[in-house]
């Protein structure tokens, strides 16, 4: 047992290494990070092919995988998908619609988000883009965690099903800084229990924390938004961030905060090349 733990620790050190050197002002290199990140998991779990990481915990628990197959006979997100589609297609009071705010009418574009917006110098998640569209058309923002926003994102994501995730970090100091901030958030320990995201989703990936499989960080963003039986409804990626922050007794950030935008930017960039597979379903 000890030797396994030591081996895991050694492996995770290899991944923490680059961060330590990044702190010493090494150049920010998302492409090199991505190669190391994906390579780390592929080497550690040689039986899990790259694209299968989008199925998160199901690669690591046969009982959960069996349950999942049953659940997917009647996907629990179907209702959200239908609602999301009609919300997306409804006209705003001013006669315009969501399609008018997005390239390609919003269809088949989810794989490109989060996106760096050079005008504001900030990262824009698909949810934030939907809210921007609403505000531009005189409507109130929607809550970013669940409800109608999760439904609209479920529909938009479904139109990208199978497309390869393609998040771009342009060679722009603000974009690189946002990426780096997300990366540091991911690897920094916080809260009374002093966990980083990486503690659970890199170092202990595939292990069981009580009854829960700790999903590997690779592929984590690909199935969102998702229906979670424990929630009893749909949730977005930020809802998950908030839940995991609370788990370790650390104060969650605001759903539209720079911290969460940047975290989503980093994590989704790490998933580049994997297929979009949302909406998803989890225990």
């Amino acid at each position: 047992m000890k030797s396994i733990i030591m081996a895991l620790m050694g492996a995770s050190l290899a991944l923490f290494g680059p961060l330590a050197s990044a702190r010493a002002a090494a150049p920010i290199n998302p492409q090199a990070d991505l190669k190391a990140f994906q390579g780390y998991f592929l080497k550690r779990f040689p039986n899990v092919p790259l694209a299968a990481y989008v199925n998160g915990p199901y690669n690591f628990s046969k009982s959960e995988a069996d349950q999942w197959k049953q659940i997917m006979e009647f996907p629990p997100y179907q209702f959200a998908l239908d609602t999301g589609k009609s919300l997306f297609n409804a006209k705003f009071p001013n006669g315009k619609d969501y399609a008018s705010c997005f390239p390609n009418g919003g269809i088949g574009i989810a794989q490109n988000y989060p996106m760096f917006d050079a005008k504001t110098g900030r990262v824009v998640t698909l949810g934030i883009a939907v809210n921007r569209c609403r505000v531009a058309n005189g409507l109130k923002k929607l809550k970013l965690t669940t409800g109608p926003m999760a439904d609209i994102l479920a529909y938009m994501t479904s139109t990208s099903d199978g497309k390869k995730i393609n998040v771009v970090v342009p060679n722009n100091p603000k974009a690189l800084a946002a990426y780096q901030a997300g990366k540091e958030y991911f690897y920094s320990r916080r809260g009374q229990l002093n966990f980083s995201c990486a503690s659970c989703h890199v170092q202990e990936a595939g292990m069981h924390l009580r009854g829960n499989v700790l999903a590997p960080a690779l592929g984590m963003t690909a199935s969102f938004p998702l229906y979670r039986s424990k929630w009893g409804n749909m949730g977005t990626l930020v809802r998950r961030f908030i839940g995991c922050n609370k788990k370790v007794h650390s104060a969650p950030a605001k759903p539209d905060s720079a911290a969460y935008r940047d975290l989503a930017y980093f994590l989704t960039y790490m998933d580049n090349g994997l297929p979009v597979s949302g909406p998803g379903a989890r225990p």
Binding site: E204, M207, R210, N212
Partner: peptide, 9 residues
């Protein structure tokens, strides 16, 4: 009941 395996038994 429902113990995890993050640490050694």
């Amino acid at each position: 009941t429902e113990a995890g395996n993050v640490g050694p038994a």
